[in-house]
């Protein structure tokens, strides 16, 4: 079978073959980028804080009674997260619990998120950008794992707004 080489004297010299090992992947709308090239295997995403939270999740369980609750599933992997909130008269979150099953990233981020929002007002949580959670998670994630990390965030926002904010998050 004949093989045709790439002509260096192309009429369109600006067209070059993509080098997939040099491609960077944007993590959503934040400034983070995941590098798919040489350093792919250098940094583990399973840093101590992730492992600690996934092995010993904070605020895991249920509230009775609760003021807000929502649960959702990541259709890609079947991860499930449920979040329940109790709020005082001033609109401050005085208790929070999450439950569910999933990978270390989704469980650790849920655990971190519950720690972050305890004591915050509902209005502040509604306005909280996802980068606040991603900064706390603190690791570079591929687009697929980003969905794991943001599942709890998505569920939390949905519980406060009473509907899925998936479109807003992924538009």
């Amino acid at each position: 079978m004949m093989s045709i080489g790439w002509s260096r004297e192309s009429a369109t010299p600006n067209v070059s073959l993509p080098d997939f090992r040099e491609i960077r992947v944007d993590c959503g709308r934040c400034a983070r980028q995941t590098f798919l090239g040489e350093n792919l295997f250098v940094d583990s995403i399973y840093r101590e804080n992730i492992l600690e939270h996934s092995k010993h999740p904070q605020n895991k369980g249920h509230l009775d009674p609760y003021d807000y609750a929502f649960e959702d599933t990541n259709p890609l992997c079947g991860d499930e997260i449920r979040i329940e909130l109790r709020v005082d008269d001033a609109g401050v979150i005085i208790d929070v619990a999450f439950d569910g099953q999933g990978c270390a990233i989704s469980q650790a981020s849920a655990s971190m998120l519950t720690e972050m929002i305890l004591g915050m007002s509902v209005e502040d949580v509604k306005a909280m950008p996802k980068d606040d959670l991603l900064d706390e998670v603190g690791i570079e994630l591929s687009p697929a794992r980003l969905k794991c990390a943001l599942l709890s965030f998505n569920v939390l926002k949905a519980s406060l707004y009473g509907k899925s904010v998936d479109e807003e998050l992924h538009s």
Binding site: C77, G102, C103, A104, I105, R145
Partner: peptide, 21 residues
């Protein structure tokens, strides 16, 4: 260990496997 974590840790070692349904 969740299957996604198994697959991600295998990826760190250069081994590509599937995790999911």
């Amino acid at each position: 260990v969740h299957p996604h974590d198994v697959a991600a840790l295998l990826d760190e070692k250069g081994v590509a496997v599937r995790a999911g349904h």
